[in-house]
Design a protein around this nucleic acid. Structure first.
Length: 648
RNA sequence: GCCAGUGUAGCUCAGUGGCAGAGCAACGGUUUCGUAAACCGUAGGUCGUCGGUUCAAUCCCGACCACUGGCUCCA
């Protein structure tokens, strides 16, 4: 996180001041109970606040009441938050005597010339730019939430600190309603609804963690989304392709993903003969020797007995790597679809007349995410991407990118998605040639075009420098899960580097070969994450076109001719591809209604003697109750029409 | 991967160093019913796995696995 300027701090909202003050009070409470604790920092957050501690005692939720009790005492003492400034030396000495080593390090972050301010409440003194509320007595409603760990400065090489999370509000009522909202969020949690509605399941023992099994009802969601994507992409001039789930090592060396991303890929499958295996080992050793040599040459500490130049060694490394890949026999599960699509582009000679070429596939990818990162459907190890790659000329790029952006908005409208943030990631010119490919003009040109598209569309977006992919700028769409976690739900990336790595060209009007630009886009992200998100967005109450069980016919009683009437309704709807079931059991209608409501069936058609006689059905909508009896034909036609239009 | 927490029936959860419990769901029967629970019964478990302490462990201890809250990561 970037340091806030003092000006920005001054503008901190009332709530943020309150929470920041609560963080200080929590730290002072902890120090009263564990005087040996060393402190890091304690900022306010969107949901509350936290403070990081280094302490031999391991915090557990059992400690919360004691800490809260101490905090309540501090509230009662109604201490004043007093600001003071010290010189750098005074500050350094203060923390040195207190043994507050993390604070000493943080002190180093403050730029020369900026004031070094402290805040004191009671005995507690903290390096802090503020601002705070006036007195501890102003903090009336707070609650400790959880204990977690966090690396110092967010770097996993640094020691892990214990982070205490809490929240604070202006008053008790607001705290209570926030707690209620959290509980409501938990009820919407896609993991919970997913198992209640039998949408997906995990079998960690036999299948593996992060590898979801789609149950029949969840598969309905998957296939409805796929149908939507296929319809939409067809109309937008995409063509569909299909590619295998694996590819040779050479593929990912060429794309540049190996060896840098090898860790997030499943380990390779070795299909080597014995002599090939030996040859590979020799080459690997040779490569390791060369890399060591290169390192020593680059650092220039040791003498260079070989007489080789850095360039020569680099060349030998590349040559060895090529030899390794030539042995073949090593396959990777694909972690992305683009390389396969690039090979499809390369499969035939291309002319400028073929462009834009839009290759679409719901491709299944596998990524070995670290175990602690797995999270329901939102973060998994097997994922199906709503992927497509658009190969185009620079002249075509603006229109293509605009069309992709419009497709996003079309989808968001269908799903009634209103709360999202578009994040436009751009490059940092000072890092051209390192973090970003050295194409300053292409960077400028594409970023300008992307920015213009965003402005024209009137979408709110935030521009984040230095966050682009190495091959081009990108737009990510951020959404929030029911429990407040932020996720990228969709992504739209410009690529003007990787096509060249694969030597992709098209023959242009002037009879020269040119490298196309490539747009990677996934407006529906992956099935896993998108459906996880939709489950929470709708709280499981899907619109008719998406609902796993769209209609259930409930009979009042189980006798003929009522059952025959119900069955004929089922048959008619099935002929129109409506997902419909009938409940013709002996249960009472109350029980049947409850079963159907709990299963979140979208439309219930209650039929009894009265309906049979009049040729009616009584319609009940999930969550909306009874909407009355209507002629059968009218109701069934409306159901079919609503599904066809994918009505919200 | 790291720190912490959790793991009892399909689900939600009780419980105890000495025979394993409830509600819902499931299954069998009775009931013939108008919009969120009719009634009776049956079955369901190596208490995550493995090891240790103990006369005796679901309970205490350890390791592992999985999940959860974070951190790191997210091409």
């Amino acid at each position: 996180m970037q340091r806030k300027t003092l000006d920005q701090r001054e503008q901190m909202s009332e709530l943020m001041r309150l929470r920041h003050s609560a963080a200080h009070m929590m730290a002072s409470a902890v120090l009263r109970l564990w005087p040996e604790a060393r402190l890091d920092i304690g900022p306010p957050t969107e949901e509350g606040f936290y403070y990081d501690f280094d302490l031999a005692h391991r915090f557990s939720p059992e400690d919360f009441p004691r800490i809260e009790e101490e905090m309540r005492k501090i509230v009662k003492e109604n201490q004043v938050f007093e600001k003071s400034t010290r010189s750098r030396d005074e500050a350094r000495e203060w923390f040195a005597t207190k043994g507050q080593t993390y604070k000493l390090e943080r002190l180093g972050d403050i730029p020369e010339g900026e004031a070094i301010s402290f805040f004191q409440n009671g005995d507690f003194v903290d390096l802090c730019a503020g601002p705070h509320v006036m007195r501890t007595g102003n903090v009336k409603a707070f609650k400790l939430l959880s204990v977690a760990s966090a690396y110092f400065r967010g770097n996993e090489k640094n020691p892990q600190l214990q982070r205490l999370y809490g929240t604070a509000f202006k008053n008790k009522e607001e705290l209570e309603s926030w707690i209620k909202l959290q509980e409501e969020g938990k009820r919407r949690d896609h993991r919970r609804i997913g198992s209640e509605m039998s949408l997906f399941a995990y079998d960690s023992e036999f299948v593996g963690p992060g590898l979801p099994l789609w149950l029949p009802k969840g598969t309905v969601l998957v296939e409805e989304l796929e149908k939507l994507a296929k319809d939409t992409e067809f109309q937008a001039g995409y063509v569909r392709v299909r590619t295998p789930h694996i590819a040779k090592e050479k593929m990912y060396r060429t794309s540049g993903h190996l060896p840098y991303y090898a860790e997030s890929m499943f380990p390779p499958m070795e299909m080597l003969e014995e002599d090939e295996r030996k040859r590979r080992e020799q080459l690997n050793e040779k490569r390791a020797d060369l890399i060591r040599l290169l390192e020593s040459l680059e650092s220039a500490v040791s003498p260079n007995p070989t007489g080789l130049t850095v360039e020569q060694v680099r060349h030998d490394i590349a040559k060895t790597e090529t030899e390794i890949t030539l042995i073949g026999g090593r396959y990777y599960l694909k972690a992305m679809n683009c390389p396969h699509h690039h090979r499809i582009f390369a499969a035939e000679p291309r002319s400028y007349r073929d462009l834009p070429l839009r290759l679409a596939e719901y491709g299944t990818c596998y990524r070995y995410e670290q175990s602690g990162e797995l999270f329901g459907l939102m973060r998994v190890r097997s994922l199906q991407m709503n992927d497509a790659h658009i190969y185009c000329t620079t002249e075509q790029f603006g229109d293509e990118f605009r069309a992709v952006n419009e497709m996003y908005l079309k989808y968001f409208k269908i799903f009634g998605l209103e709360k999202y943030r578009m994040r436009f990631s751009t490059h940092d010119p000072s890092k051209l040639g390192q973090k970003f490919v050295n194409e300053p003009e292409l960077w400028k040109k594409t970023e300008d075009m992307v920015r213009q598209v965003l402005i024209d569309s009137g979408i709110d977006f935030v521009e984040v420098p230095n966050e682009a992919a190495f091959y081009g700028p990108k737009i990510d769409v951020q959404v929030w899960s029911a429990i407040g976690r932020e996720f990228t739900i969709a992504t739209n990336q410009v690529d003007f580097a990787v096509p060249a790595r694969f030597g992709l060209t098209y023959r242009d009007r002037d009879n020269t070969d040119k490298t196309p630009l490539c747009i990677h886009r996934a407006p529906l992200g992956t099935h896993e994450r998108f459906i996880g998100f939709l489950i929470e967005h709708y709280a499981g109450n899907f619109p008719l076109w998406l609902a796993p069980e769209q209609v259930r016919v409930l009979t009042i009683g189980d006798e003929e001719p009522l059952v025959g009437y119900a069955k004929s309704i089922v048959q008619e709807l099935r002929e129109n591809f409506v997902r419909v079931e009938a409940d013709i059991t002996t249960n009472k209608i109350n029980g049947k209604v409850q079963d159907a409501e709990r299963a979140k069936v979208h439309t219930m058609l209650v039929v009894g003697g009265r309906d049979l006689e009049a040729g009616n059905v009584s319609v009940r909508l999930h969550g909306k109750g009874n909407v009355g009896a209507k002629p059968r034909a009218e109701v069934l036609a409306d159901i079919v029409q609503s599904i066809r239009e994918r009505r919200a």
